[in-house]
Design a protein around this nucleic acid. Sequence first.
DNA 1: CCTAATATGTTCTATGATGAACTTATTACG
DNA 2: CGTAATAAGTTCATCATAGAACATATTAGG
Lengths: 400, 400
Amino acid sequence: MRHSPLTALLYKQPEGTPAARIVQTLGEHGALSATQLARITGLAKSTISTALASLKDSNMVIEGAWAVRGKSPGAGRPAITITLNPEVGTCVGVLLGVEHIQVILADVTHAVISDASTAMNSDYTPREAVAVASKLIEQAYKSYGLSTDTMLGVGIAVAGPINPRDGKILRASGVPTWAGVNIAEEFKRVLRRPVIAENESNCSAIAELMWGVAKGCDDFVFLTMDMAVGGAVVLRGQLVSGNAGAAGEFGHICIDPNGPQCRCGKRGCLELYAGLERPLSRYSSAQGGPVTIEDVISRAVEGDDVCRAMIRDTAHVAGRGLGIVTSILDPGLVVVGGRLAMAGDLLLAPLRTSFETHSLVRQSGPNPDTDTQIRGSAFSGRGACLGAVGLVLRSCGRSG
Amino acid sequence: MRHSPLTALLYKQPEGTPAARIVQTLGEHGALSATQLARITGLAKSTISTALASLKDSNMVIEGAWAVRGKSPGAGRPAITITLNPEVGTCVGVLLGVEHIQVILADVTHAVISDASTAMNSDYTPREAVAVASKLIEQAYKSYGLSTDTMLGVGIAVAGPINPRDGKILRASGVPTWAGVNIAEEFKRVLRRPVIAENESNCSAIAELMWGVAKGCDDFVFLTMDMAVGGAVVLRGQLVSGNAGAAGEFGHICIDPNGPQCRCGKRGCLELYAGLERPLSRYSSAQGGPVTIEDVISRAVEGDDVCRAMIRDTAHVAGRGLGIVTSILDPGLVVVGGRLAMAGDLLLAPLRTSFETHSLVRQSGPNPDTDTQIRGSAFSGRGACLGAVGLVLRSCGRSG
DNA sequence: CCTAATATGTTCTATGATGAACTTATTACG
DNA sequence: CGTAATAAGTTCATCATAGAACATATTAGG
């Protein structure tokens, strides 16, 4: 099973044969009918039909008579749903977070089989990361009685931009000690499988695109609000990585050129005002003990004024940042993720208000046709790692 | 000739038949050999060969034995260059500027046949625009003995964003009185030809992409520096228009939320600091008479300190704006256009310096691999109108 | 001047996607 | 309960594309 037929289909052509495109599309969308496949891939019904026949023969896809998603059974012959055969392979997503490493094991339908984490001291080395993640992966396979031979690939979510040309973490990254490391190579050497590394925010955006609030939306912007501030840009269904992989670094938009120095070297970055690191450490010392983002949110929900103000203040600056992003990209949708997004409307309401005063299009009054929507992420914290899982079936034929 | 075979080829399929793609590619690149066509379109040599045969039969393309561009004749059979037959049709580009209307008439090879302008009072109406432009077009055809039957289409460059959904000029536009007008329709009604309207900066970007410094570059950002500040975003060879057509409105990036009110309704927009409108009117009253951008540039070239400072100051703020753009898009190339770009290094040198201090990627020191290049436009003022010409052969099958 | 090397362009056949027509399976309604 | 309407999925002739092999036109060098 070292090189399964699925692997061959996935890691091949840029546009691909009908079979490959079907597998890809099923990977992204889950269960679909033949007609839906035709619509999504743009191929003819007949083409789908013949391709599906051979895919069924080789056991790559299976059919079930379950109701097709989002379709109330009306008149007409009911559709037969097609799914990737879960037994055909597994995908692994790894999140290399600041304080923990998370590993999600999923089948090709993206059904999560296992989700495990290990706490880490911040400033762990790439070598440690590989060791800990490999162990988590191994344990996940072992405890579910699966062979690692079924592993089709590994997606890795990293804090910091990755140069798309050489795969190395950018020197102007969130984790300076990792600068210049090609983390995908490090993992590939040990796991001997296709490994795709991506920026954490980009992974979150992928998750939103595939299964989240941005499903079916080809153009949107993702904003991470957590200790740090990050983001991602999706245009025509594809991540925009930029020349050096630094696209979507909303946290480093200059808000005030005379502001305090940021760890990136510049002054007055958005992250310094809209990130929770500074207000949280101030609040923690005022409280006389460490307070987490989750604590702040639950206290805010309970009505704590200081915590509400903290969220409102970050929302206000973030809205200004989004206004700037909108002057440049004018996205139809902004998805807000990161742990602070779990605050829901406590964050989103002031964010929307601030955005409207700072948005060009909104200056001519509300208009549902042209207004940018702002929505909270559908995932609470797991988004980035799920997105890393999604990377495996998405990024076909790029790295190998 | 009302519906020439070329029109049929141009305004049809989204991806298109080989013949259509060849015509498009020739339209964009000019003279090419069959082999180059195969490389650029991605089609097989054989496909190109057969398609070219029928295109030659129908006289759509002609071959010449001129040396293929950028190819020193080495060993091997010399290439035969293919060009669109200039006699097969003409394209018109219209620029609706603030103070003048410009019309360029070109053949399908984009060779400019005529270039004429009429001065306008600012705040002219769409109806006047159509009348004046139509007259200029008519004169151009008449004075070169061409029939308007050969007109394949008209591209229009407009100051202000255009909603890609309904083609109407956005209400938050540069010319408020034009808000809500579908200028392409207005022209189409009179000219009875395919008309494509685009934002002026977007047209300039198209020109740079097709024939300017961004030739062969699929991802770049265009910055207009003139009385106002605008811009455009090109990703994967395509213009990014945004949800409401307001993508690339760099002039309305918020630089200071407590700054003066901008005509767009927001406060402290980049345009107020990096646009020449305010410094120029101040300087004009100090000089006791109207001074143009061209005057400022020539005085700066001659060594005038006030004019040099004016350019340097706008460059400084613009660099900060570009730094912000880079945090979001991280483009590999920035092309600077608008009349101020004619100042050359007087503008570009301080712009680059300012950009570097405000650019995230640059924080880890210079690196030719990841650094964003900043180049001046290749066109002096004519870019937008030339781009409008280019729109005609480019935007196939969108509007019609 | 002849041959090798190199590159362009053409021919021919197999493949494989397409679209029209058809079959199948269900609901709606009289 | 039967027929019309609707939608899903299949079959098959047609045709466009690609790939391999070939023909053609040039330079380099002995």
